[in-house]
């Protein structure tokens, strides 16, 4: 059971690795206090670079560090990581085949009081268009730690959606979490609910419990890795349950729902539906308000699930 905020797990994991691996660096664009990497800077001052409010430059500097043999982890709010520095990440990092680990924090509704300007509902979609990029969104502290380590070992750039605040422990220390492989959290045969991230995985599990009370057995999957998608598990789930509901803290276009729908369209056409943001911008509010506003609730997931089953 973790008593730590996700961001503390992020920094701690990087510090553990940096002890043994001199190549690991941290970059920030004036959000070191927000991401919580100050303790990394205290311990490894020569390997922590704060470039000020200049995200595009940060990603460029990270690309150069990588070209010089380092493994840079660069973080900023997801809206800036994806939108502000997209071309730098696309060209200097990915096209140049560099090893830049970019982190977009405060995904989707978790941007809360920062509101519409800061609420990335499109980052995964943008990132999915970058050839070869690995994209993942851990939902809890255990998978976060494991996936950061695996991403560091991966040769190539990665994009991680990170919920900074909040504590959540789903997995046990012995659970196997593999980058690129979804985790089946609950078995069921009536439909599959595929979810990702800190906001949606717990809601999906709660919705599955509500459905179970009504005699509907949902298979629930934590699809922490959006790219490369675990197509085998998606197809197997569609074959087994006949319908797939995707829950993501992102807009409907371009993200996990799109990835799953593309996969099933090509390999095993089956009814699909999404709990995701429609064609809308973000807005201010508490996390609870925003979850309600965009339908990111167990009740809405259960409703969508029942409607989907009727289409089988």
């Amino acid at each position: 059971m973790s008593d730590k905020d996700m961001r503390d797990v992020y920094t701690e994991t990087l510090m553990e690795m940096a002890d043994a691996d001199q190549r690991i660096c941290v970059l920030e664009a004036d959000l070191m206090r927000a991401t919580g990497t100050g303790s990394f800077k205290d311990k490894f001052p020569e390997r922590a670079f704060n470039v000020g409010v200049a995200e595009a430059n940060m990603v460029g500097v990270a690309s150069g560090l990588s070209a010089g043999g380092k493994i840079p982890w660069a973080a900023t709010f997801g809206c800036f990581a994806a939108r502000r520095s997209y071309d730098q990440f696309f060209i200097s990092a990915n096209y140049a085949q560099q090893n830049v680990k970019l982190v977009g924090t405060d995904p989707g509704v978790t941007a809360a009081f920062n509101g519409g300007t800061h609420m990335p509902f499109e980052d995964t979609g943008l990132m999915r268009c970058i050839p070869g990029l690995v994209i993942f969104e851990p939902c809890d502290s255990v998978s976060l730690k494991s996936l950061i380590r695996q991403a560091t070992e991966h040769k190539g750039s990665t994009y991680m959606r990170l919920q900074r605040k909040g504590k959540y422990t789903l997995y046990g220390e012995s659970d196997e979490i593999v980058l690129g492989k979804g985790n089946v959290l609950k078995e069921g045969e009536d439909l599959t609910i595929i979810a990702s991230g800190y906001v949606m995985v717990p809601e999906a599990l709660a919705a599955a419990e509500m459905l179970a009370d009504e005699g509907i057995n949902a298979r629930v999957i934590d699809m922490h890795t959006v790219k490369p998608l675990d197509r085998k598990l998606v197809v197997e789930s569609a074959e087994k349950t006949g319908a797939v509901l995707v829950c993501e803290n992102h807009q409907k276009k371009g993200g996990l729902f799109s990835a799953v729908a593309e996969c099933l369209g090509e390999e095993y056409p089956a009814p699909v539906a999404a709990v995701a943001v429609e064609d809308q911008f973000g807005q201010v509010g508490t996390l609870e308000y925003l979850k309600e506003a965009y339908g990111f609730t167990k009740e809405n997931i259960a409703e969508k699930a029942k409607a989907l089953i009727k289409r089988k």
């Binding site: 500097v61 150069g64 990588s66 010089g68 140049a96």
Partner: peptide, 25 residues
């Protein structure tokens, strides 16, 4: 060729990263 370039404006940031890596080394 030490760095991929072409989208104008990006090379100086990359050069900074290379210089920082050299300093670490």
């Amino acid at each position: 060729i030490d760095m991929t370039t072409g989208s104008l404006g990006q090379g100086l940031s990359s050069a900074i990263g290379l210089a920082l890596a050299m300093r670490l080394d």
